[in-house]
């Protein structure tokens, strides 16, 4: 090979390598960009039962008495929080447009104070965007003293445009411990709620 050809080949190799490295960096960044994108996608579409964790205003709609929808409540304990959580009723039957209030009991079964948070999820996912919560314990963290027991309300409404094939909506709350102090993420949520309230 002539020196010219060798040089051209080396330049070609260098170009290929730099392009590959750029692609690599791009894909690594893309992997991290997928985190907020995924979150935004789920919230926009209601997929995966992700609910807006801010309070929404009740829209006064005419109650659709021709339809009755069963709303079930499931509470679960995530690992590591010695609390007991229970809904006052396992299910209610209501009409779209109707506002309903259900109380949830939280009891700290340990002998130390702790912070907890109930993370909500809605099933089926196509009902997610049609559940409007005005007030929910899931908007903020709770602090319970040793052995303390509190009752907190959930006020919600099913929108009238709830897809017709939905006959049962299940609201799931999973309790998770909040370690240490409040994280800034939650503090933001709280101010938002404060503004709206």
């Amino acid at each position: 090979m002539s020196p010219n050809e060798t040089r051209a080949r080396q330049a070609g190799v260098r170009r290929t390598v730099w392009r590959s490295v750029a692609a690599l960096a791009g894909m690594f960044a893309f992997a991290f960009a997928l985190v907020p994108l995924y979150d935004a996608f789920c919230r926009l579409t209601g997929i995966n039962g992700k609910v807006d964790t801010t309070a929404q205003a009740i829209v006064s709609e005419e109650v659709d008495e021709s339809r009755t929808v069963t709303v079930q409540f499931i509470t679960r304990n995530g690992a590591g929080l010695p609390w007991h959580m229970q809904a006052e009723t396992r299910q209610v039957r209501l009409h779209p447009g109707q506002t309903s209030e259900v109380n949830f009991t939280f009891r700290n079964q340990s002998d130390g104070e702790s912070w907890g948070r109930a993370v909500p999820s809605v099933s089926p996912s196509n009902a997610t965007r049609h559940v409007r919560k005005t007030s929910c314990f899931c908007f903020e963290e709770q602090q319970l003293q040793a052995g303390e027991r509190i009752e907190l309300p959930l006020v919600f409404q099913l929108a009238r445009d709830l897809p017709p094939e939905v006959h049962t909506v299940t609201l799931v709350y999973t309790l998770y411990p909040v370690e240490g102090k409040r994280q800034p993420q939650q503090a933001v949520v709280q101010t938002k709620q404060g503004e709206e309230a």
Partner: peptide
């Protein structure tokens, strides 16, 4: 990232992993 207690999502892991 994958911890629901802190606002993450375990299902996100599966999407990223299988991608």
């Amino acid at each position: 990232f994958f911890n629901a207690a802190g606002g993450g999502d375990p299902v996100l892991f599966q999407h990223l992993f299988w991608f």
